[in-house]
Amino acid sequence: MARLDGKTAEEAAPSGASAGRDGGMRLTLGPVLFNWDAGAWRDFYFRMADEAPVDTVVVGEIVCSKRLPFFLDHMPSVIDRLTAAGKTVLLGSLVLVSLPRERRQMADLVEAEHLVEVNDLSCMPALAGRRHAIGPFVNVYNEATAAFLAGRGAERICLPPELPLASVRAIATALPDTVFEVFAFGKVPLAISARCYHARVHGLSKDNCRFICEQDPDGLPVSTLDGDGFLTVNGVQTLSHTCANLLGDAPALADAGVRSLRLSPQHCDMVEVARTFRDVLDGRSEAEAGSEALATLYPAVPFANGFLHGIPGASRVAGARAGGA
């Protein structure tokens, strides 16, 4: 069967996606992954809009469709505030879509006027030929897949956190007109399930979960039987215990063609996290000093960048230099 649009990926690639190409590394604030109090959620975005040096902000509940109604009321004001502050707003789609309710929610999402960040390919039929972004939960492991998606209207692609630098470079180099982003700060999403582990740990069923995940605004720590920090449970999602920190890898990423770094909200001062990244990216401080600042802002959680270096994701390669991995 031929391509739906009858074009090759190269012909179909969007031409207007080159913003920021020469403007250095940009910053994107990813969606809040945890079940925060709705008021705190709104205030977080208001403050990010007013104070954080980020260029793009992804808004929306992407982990659990049951949480979505809590945030819906605040969405318009949050989007307005971010837009007024000059931020580009993306609406994140659910990572795992299986229920009829979830399919309806996604149908509503793609009808919205803002660009959608696709986290599951079920959004693709409705978005065919329309501008959109691809989130880190879509499997873009190679340049052929990236080219196919770009050909269908993807202007920005946040690559899967698991990808090593060599793959990032091969993909970004092949598609110079697409904005590529990598996951640079925050606990790394590792898995999604139909089963809710927060409910399971509390002996509840998913349907009657009592939104118990709200007790853990930074996720529920999971350790090994030896007491080593290992993973983090966030409802149906499992994340790393470690916190991604690619500050030291930023020059190598820029060299590989990456144009934006994603900061994933943790329960810490994300304005200062964004400022720390901005300062290092703009040469106002060294990566090492920046990492020390991050360790103060988000203490007690070790940093990791192993995925980028092709070693266990939980590991950290310190003092990474351009051309590594």
Partner: peptide
């Protein structure tokens, strides 16, 4: 698989 297949990086997190 208890996680959605093809969307799980648990193994590479621990082993690469």
């Amino acid at each position: 698989c208890v996680m959605a297949e093809g969307r799980c990086s648990l193994s590479s997190y621990a082993t690469g």
